[in-house]
Nucleic acid binder design. Sequence first.
RNA 1: GGCGCCGUACCCAAGUGGUAAGGGAGAGGUCUGCAAAACCUUUAUGCACCGGUUCGAUUCCGGUCGGCGCCUCCA
Length: 495
Amino acid sequence: MAPKRALRLYNTLGRRVEELRTHQPGKVGMYCCGPTVYEYQHIGNFRTYILEDVLRRALTALGYEVRHVMNVTDVGHLTDDADEGDDKMLQSARREGKSAWDIAAFYTEQFFRDSRALNILEPHVVARATNHIDEMIELIERLESAKLTYEANGNVFYDVAGFDRYGELALLDRQDLRAGARIDVDSSKRNPEDFGLWFTRSKFERQEMLWDSPWGRGYPGWHIECSAMAMKYLGETVDIHCGGIDHVPVHHTNEIAQSEGAIGLSSHSDRRWVSHWCHGEFLIIDSAKMSKSKGNLVRIDQLVEQGYEPLDYRYFVLGAHYRKQQNFTAASLEAARSARLNLVDRLASLASEVGEAGAVDEQLAGADGEAHPLYQEALELAASDLSMPRVLEVLWRLAKEASGPAVDLLAGAAAIDGILGLGLVEAARRTAAERDVAAGAPLDGEIRALVDQREKARQEGDYATADRIRDDLAARGVELQDTPEGVRWRQQASV
RNA sequence: GGCGCCGUACCCAAGUGGUAAGGGAGAGGUCUGCAAAACCUUUAUGCACCGGUUCGAUUCCGGUCGGCGCCUCCA
C-alpha cells in the first residue's frame, strides 16, 4: 500500500532533501543506533532518540508501515579504566562484585525507563549485541571471503584499501585528515582508517565478555554489530538508518564499508545498503558539546529532580529543527515548560467545553481529527523534512485561534499530537477532569472547608486571612478565581 | 592545517528572491478588596559586518568577524 504522502527527508548521503524511496512500496525499514549501556544516557543522547521517534511517528501518520529496529550495545569490558571517575553505579557494582552483564542490564533498564517517560515508542525490535555474536562472526567470514580483511597482532581488521567507496558518506576524500591527531593509531594497522572486526588481543586488562571464534577467543569490534543486526532484521536493504551526527565520519562510514563489502556492492553498483541516512545534530550546553570529559552531562532524572517533567524536555527538543545545533539552558527549558503547560491548559478548556470527563472520550472517539485542515497542514510540515517547530506553531494556532466545535478542535489537536508525541490531549483530559470535580462537588473536604473559610473572611473584610488561605491553596496546586458569579477553583495544570 | 554547520527581538526559535511564524519573558489595559486566571493590546523598516548579483536580498554569490562540531570506538 502506498503512503498518503511521501516523506521528504534530508539525506546525509548526497547532502540534500530527497523524497523517501522505499525498497517495498509503503513499507519502511529503519535502523537506529541505540545506546551503549555502560553509563547513563544523557539528554543530548535523547535528543537523537526523540528525533527517531518523531520520524517514526511522521512515517506512520503518512501511511507507511514502519519496522523500527534499534541495537543495544552491551558488549562490555569492565576494565580498570572504565572504573575511573565518580560513577557510583560502577563503583558499587565493583564493590558488590557485579559483572559487566549486571551493569549492562541496569543501564538498559534506565534507558527504557527514560525513553518511556519521554513518550518514545519502543522499537519493534530491540537487538542486543551479545545475542548476535554468531551473526557478527558470519559477517566477518563473508568479509574474509571477499578479501577485505587481514589479521595482525592477533586481531582481525577491515582493509579499507579494498573498498573503493570508503568515506563517501562523510566526504572523507575532501578532508585533509590528521591521522592520530587525537588518538594514537594502532601500529599494526595497514591504514589508519582500518578498523577492528574481531579482537583476541584485548587492550583491556580485565575483559569479561569473551566468545570463541575462528580467530580465537575474543570479542567483536564495535561497528560490526550494527551491520550484522541490521541485515538480520531488515535484510540487505535498509530504507532509513539514523543516528547522531557524530556517527557519520567513523561508525556509519565503517558500517557502509562492512555491509556493502559483504554484500558485494562496488562503486559500479547503483544499489546501496542504506538508501537514506538521517542524522541528528548535537545538543549544546552552555555553548559547548555535552560530553563526559567536559563533565557537563545532564540526565533526564536530574531534570525531574529539578521539578521538570520529562515531556518538558521533549517539548524543548521539538522547538528546534533536528539538523541544527540546539542550545540547552535553564531559561530555554523553563520556557518550554511554560509553553507546554499553557498548551495543556488551553486544550483542557476545550475538553471542558466538550463535556464531562467520560463524555470527552466518547466524543473524541466519534470525531475525525485527521479531517481537520490544520492537521493536514501539520502533516504536510512533518512530511517536509520533519519541521516540528512549524508543526508546533500550527498546533498553537489550533489551540488559540481556530473556530469550530470544541470536539473537532480537540480531535485535531490529538491527531497532531500523534506526530509530536507530547501526550497533550491526554494531559488536557486529566486536567479537565480535575476541574470538573472542582466545579462540582469537591472530593477533598479539607479544600472545600478552606475555600469556605476564605469566602467568610473576605465578606468580613479580613483580606489578610483571605490572602493567606489563597496562598496556602496555591501551594497545594489549587488555584482560586473570584468571578462575578462567585468563587471558583481548579487544579493547576501540572501534568 | 582540512572538512562541515551556524550567527534572526530580552531569551529560545521558524522562515522566504518581494518586504520577518510561534513560544517564553516583559509592558499597558479590562476585570478584582488586592490578586490570580482569562481576554485585549504591545515589543526587529530589522535578520553579525562589508561588498556583489537583482527591479527588489534576511534569503543567492564573495569576503570579514564571531560561535559550534568533526579529523578514527563521542547521540
